[in-house]
Amino acid sequence: MNSMYGGVYIPNLANDAKQYGIGEYRFAHNYEFAGKTFKICADGKEYTLHFCCEHGVEFNGEKTEWECEKLEKTMYFVRFGANCAAIDLENGLATLVLDGEEKPVLGVIDGYEPKEKQAICTDDMVGTFVRWVFGVNRYVNHDYCAPGKIRSAWARHTVHIGGGRSFRDGWQPTDADYVEEDAVEVKLGGAYYLVIVDAKMPEGEGYVAPADVKKLVLLEDYDRCMTVGCAFGSEGGPIMMAGYAMFLN
């Protein structure tokens, strides 16, 4: 965003980083898992995640790539291929969201004996109305309106029209911009929740998220009020994200 002063353009490093879309605030990749292996047990099944190096992982023996964002001291969000996981090294919990599976896998990491396990929420989050800001003017409003239901509204692009003004300056979603989506919310303990949204992208032009996103998975921390996660299903590939919360009620 440059400004003009006396006919001279003054450079300004602040920008809207539009090349990253809703992935703008993605944290730096975290490589702490490189070289580590986790055996995860859930419902009598065993899953193995072997992080071979900073980019390659084997999941149950199948090779794919991975990326990780760290949310808190011992809380990580990992995407591997079309799958993802919330890994809690304090309590030894691994919650897997696997491509094609309807429900998340609530697993325990081998070697840990957690005092409390993760659990599917009932009405734990109902009443929460939060905006997750993923970039400059790029956000989604999430209204946890009923167990397993979220009302969502994505922001729309601002378009600079000159004179320092933008089309849609101060734009706010109205009722018509909200869609109701199915969601699975998992309580991970403390302030942490994993929210898996069966995304129904709004019809029409100008929304900040790609129209073909199918699934949104967010690891949300209501203590520090930040989130990391991933939007899946878009033709451009999975979009790793991070952002901060603004409460709307």
Binding site: F27, A28, N30, Y31, E32, A34, K70, L71, E72, K73, M75, D123, D124, M125, V126, G127, T128, F129, V130, A191, Y193, Y222, D223, R224, C225, M226, Y244, F247, N249
Partner: peptide, 24 residues
């Protein structure tokens, strides 16, 4: 529960601090 009311401690400029990195 409206998680806006989660019993969090007081934060000033440290709430949106990213976590300690131990990979070095």
């Amino acid at each position: 529960m409206n998680l806006k009311n989660y019993p969090r401690p007081f934060y000033a400029i440290n709430q949106f601090c990213q976590p300690q990195c131990t990979e070095l």
